[in-house]
């Protein structure tokens, strides 16, 4: 099998995941897109492991580690999303603007110089 086949699938999956992270407004959909990107990386790791015939199976073992870390990440991420939802009654990311900077005045230096 050409090595390019898994690599191309992985590159496309990663780009689609990046698009989802940038576009989606719902926090859980953003988490799903992050999962897509992690899967692309896993596919790369397995493909290179099989290609290199690594004696220690580094690629496959790292894939297992990434899957575990992804599970931990989803658990913590969902706990945070639920906490935000409980406090704010929303999981739309662009409504959570509490910590942003105030839009600067037209002069631009007024607040910075203070």
């Amino acid at each position: 099998m050409p090595l390019l086949m898994p690599l191309l699938v992985a590159a496309l999956l990663f780009s689609i995941g990046a698009y989802g992270v940038l576009v989606r407004r719902n926090a859980i959909l953003v988490l799903m897109s992050v999962e897509l990107m992690l899967n692309a990386v896993n596919l790369n790791l397995v493909a290179f492991d099989v290609w290199l015939r690594d004696a220690l199976l580094s690629g496959q073992v790292f894939t297992l580690f990434v899957i575990t870390i992804a599970a931990a990440e989803v658990g913590l991420g969902l706990a945070i999303v639920l906490l935000v939802f409980r406090n704010r009654e929303t999981s739309q990311l662009d409504l959570l603007t509490e910590l942003r900077e105030e839009p600067s005045d037209p002069a631009g230096v007024g607040t910075a110089a203070r």
Binding site: N39, V50, T63, L64, A70
Partner: peptide
Amino acid sequence: GCYLLLSAEFVAWVQVLIY
């Protein structure tokens, strides 16, 4: 399924179970 075709059988089943 791609993992299975790349002969990474264990990773494939872990993927099914966990993901």
